[in-house]
Design a binder for these strands. Sequence first.
DNA 1: TGTACATCAGTGAACGCGCGTTCACTGATGTAC
DNA 2: TGTACATCAGTGAACGCGCGTTCACTGATGTAC
Lengths: 205, 205
Amino acid sequence: MRDTTSTGRPRNRRGEGRLLRAEIVAAAAGILAREGGEEAVTLRSVAREIGIAAPSIYAHFDDRQAIIDAVVDEAFAELHRRVTSYDRSPDPVHNLVAGCMGYVRFALEQPATYRILFGLAPTTPVDAETAGRRTAGFTALVDALTVCVAAGRSTSTEPFSDSADIWSALHGTATLRTSRPSFPWPPLERSVRQLVQRLGLIVIG
Amino acid sequence: MRDTTSTGRPRNRRGEGRLLRAEIVAAAAGILAREGGEEAVTLRSVAREIGIAAPSIYAHFDDRQAIIDAVVDEAFAELHRRVTSYDRSPDPVHNLVAGCMGYVRFALEQPATYRILFGLAPTTPVDAETAGRRTAGFTALVDALTVCVAAGRSTSTEPFSDSADIWSALHGTATLRTSRPSFPWPPLERSVRQLVQRLGLIVIG
DNA sequence: TGTACATCAGTGAACGCGCGTTCACTGATGTAC
DNA sequence: TGTACATCAGTGAACGCGCGTTCACTGATGTAC
């Protein structure tokens, strides 16, 4: 395994050096998803993937952790999309379940990516704006449950706490299935629907 | 940081070489719990902790992974104790909740240890006996819910599937709280009691 | 009771590996005059 | 239109580190005779 390739990629034109930054983040995200763990994302593995020399990365990132941070930011944005991109229904319960399904599906389809979001306590302290972006998914969940309460479709008296429990249950559903793929799990849709209905105190409409 | 210490531990007496095996497992478990990640358990860190030379470990373990495996086995046994060691009550719902609380408390008190049990898919294939020991906790949960059904305290018609969902929810409750310690979580007991009651279809007795 | 010897419980030095990071550099390309 | 030069987008070699693992070894201790 060589660090460099003779048939290397062509260098970017003048003024287009920033393009490499995006390539680095994309390569890191790819390695993470493919190899299954953050530790596989090294400066050298990223450089190898793109076909550049390892030190070239320092023009765009302070250190290895800065690459990971960029991947994390992108992944949070993608997760938020998955939680909020569904066809709106007049039925608020349907919308709530759809958002939750989006969450769980993301976590199951991209387990390694999901794991760097919620698998460990964040090592780097984050500013308020970043923290906001990182809890946007949860906020959407609370909102969706509150709409159900307002529409008389949930008897929850504490939507925030009940949403926190739903979030925990969704998180556990996705991660435990990832961890124990050969366990005889109930069908995913059944579990998610039931978790939401029972923990969200949904009444049949 | 040196590999060896001049004030090393005294070597074991003849015939007591196996004692070192237990010391190695205990040291590895300690490093794991203290450092928070499996990757901190290296042959050298374990040797340093005990005060032996790194190659001495090879008399007791084939390789690094074998140490981890031994720690995992011990941790599963400990988890099973935590799930089943509570004062039995005539109330089957109380027993069910007590077992679940034991599970979640173990996961919250020893997050790194819990993570090597359920944080990733097992890398080493396991024999049937080992697999059985590793699902003993879940079996206890199904049994406890089944007792509730028999006593008319649960209306669950699918205790196995509902137990799987409870397990997922407990897993998520513990791991997400570990991952997001500064989130305004509801009190732990409230969440666990409510997860069990709602997902287990518990009726007020 | 004395002694040669086998065995046990380790040690110490060395290896090759991939890693993050530093450093001095190179060669193409755009620009000022 | 030509040319000197600054800048940009990287490169290549090297560093020290901790790691897993191999190897030949050592010194205390129990045991056979």
